[in-house]
Nucleic acid binder design. Structure first.
Lengths: 199, 199, 199, 199
DNA sequence: TATGAATGAGTGTTCATTCAT
DNA sequence: AATGAATGAACACTCATTCAT
């Protein structure tokens, strides 16, 4: 279930470098977007360009690794809330925290977007991981009556991606988040479909 | 109503070329994303690359012009609904139509995002234009009791951008749109702030 | 029947540059071998690297153009001898002249080798051109009784390539050429197959 | 008989590794040409890249060692024919066998070419070794009246290199070999120089 | 001694932008 | 004004070679 599928475990220093590169890539892509150059990543990591390519043989694979790492961290965070007392607060709190992080990190948005699209299998293993963890949070919040019953984990992830994007690129603030939270919450009089038609 | 403040009025054929380039750019960027090459735009427009750069001295400025044109069209569309009978339907219908268009046009998303960020003055004149037109739609829908009173036009634009992004990149569908519509609609028991906290 | 298949004829200066690049490539590849860099070619031609790639979109295509040009020149030379008085002298003289040129130009060897291999169609149109011209020379020399009848133009081209290689890389001299000429000449007592078996 | 003049004798396992690397290099260069990477050689040998460079400090030296090994084997083969009954058959058979091997092994050609050029001292000791062995075969064949008297061992080696090249790169077949054999054979009416002039 | 991770100069290629025609 | 050839910095990626483990 770990990320690397390498034959033998990497040497300690190699592992350290891999981590340095990954961290640098995360920073660089977060700030400059995914079109930042691999040279920039190497520079920030303090390693030679060859080292970057030794660990991640294409830029694509580096990007993928960054996304996977992000998604894994989010999934862990979600799993940590799995048995929180207030299921509703856990769900909405997680959602808000992810969005607030996007204010700085473009990569979060992209990671979420990729994770939501199954066709593009870049985020391969990690996407489902997050979706599953989020699913648990969602199910508990629904059972507790805090979230409407007719929303799927996939829909929540799409909302998450959209909100992150809106926050980071279109200047969305808590007002916007509140609207979405209200849309998600169960406290509403009307049965499904009674609201404004979504087509 | 025109965007450019050029010194002398363009000759007829120059104007025609400018329009051809703009149309081609819109198509190309919509399909291939904004990283498509200017050569590709020139080819599609059937003009030389020099002509593209004569009218839009940098790629950035070409991109900006495309976004502005998009926003102007959206603003016009919104203005056309200004005196619709059902103010709620007008508002939600406009929203849904914009989002559905994003399924094909990557540029729409970006245009909306840019328009929402005042700091970035790329979309200069056109952003406010759309915001104003949308504001009218919103105010009427709020007056008619179809949309909650505590949302601003800026927030709606951010939501629009987020939804477009979610639709185009994260596979969002009508389920997601419905959630947002419910969040926006006025039919809810609780006064502001009673829902899940957005911080 | 010309080399370029471009839509419209190149401008005069573009043609000039194309020629400069081609000439530079020929020199560079002749001296340093085909693994010389395209940057080197650009430098020698006195143009920017972009110009090289505008005319020859890959290194492969540049190489091909160089080979084609070489083969075309050889073919022209062969055609010029088509109606020489002494058919034998024409044939052997052409052969010797080509080989002597290889002393300086690695590319000649490679061009001939490529031309001889039909599978590899790099030298596409030009290879057959040379083979045909050489075929005429050969047929006339055979008719004149100067060259044995059981050799084909393809075999002569392979010999030519081999001799060029031997000359340029293995220090072959006229002694070696003489042996091959004797092998090719008709003045021999034995009918085919009476010599040392070639298997 | 060994090539290296290293300070202290290698340990048994080191020797074994050296041999493994050499064998792998031979295979790799034979199949992929001399531009194959040293990493590939290490992989094929089943050793680390560091080991390759410990034994052969540059790629150039590895290449040289491969060529030397090839030439040594050819020399041994030639020596084995030193006292064959039919001196002519021995000579021509050896020649044909070497050429036929070139069909698969690019390196053979290069080895022969290098061996023929004294200036380039890469094949240092081994080149002369082959030339000497070949010289014996040649002298005996000449004494037996099977090969013309006015050819030197060096010329034969150049011919060998050229034929290998022609075979491997220009599609030469037995027809070509036959021509050369006829040129080399003694059964000809004319004294030296009566044939077509080689200049 | 053997390993393989690290290095960085070098490669082929692209593309926004300039400028001669 | 329009053209498209020319430019060269920038990019992703490779590979011979070095060096810490």
């Amino acid at each position: 279930m770990t990320t690397s599928a390498s034959r033998r475990p990497l040497r300690a220093d190699a592992l350290r470098n891999r981590a340095k590169v990954l961290a640098a890539a995360e920073e660089v892509f977060a700030v400059q977007g995914t079109s930042a150059s691999t040279d920039e990543v190497a520079r920030r990591a303090g390693v030679g360009i060859g080292t970057v390519f030794r660990h991640f043989p294409t830029k694509e694979s580096l990007l993928e690794a960054v996304l996977v790492a992000l998604l894994e961290r989010l999934a862990e965070e979600a799993e940590g809330l799995r048995s929180a007392d207030d299921a509703g607060a856990a769900f909405f709190g997680f959602f808000a925290r992810v969005v607030s992080r996007a204010k700085v990190k473009q990569a979060v948005t992209e990671a979420l977007a990729e994770a939501g699209v199954d066709a593009h299998d870049r985020a391969g293993t990690a996407g489902p991981g997050l979706k599953a963890a989020l699913g648990v949070l969602l199910a508990r919040a629904q059972a507790a009556g805090a979230v409407r019953a007719d929303v799927s984990a996939g829909e929540v992830m799409a909302l998450l991606a959209g909100l992150c994007y809106a926050t980071e690129r279109a200047g969305a603030d808590e007002g916007v988040l509140r609207v979405v939270f209200d849309g998600l919450s169960a406290r509403r009089a009307d049965p499904r479909g009674a609201g404004p038609s979504a087509t």
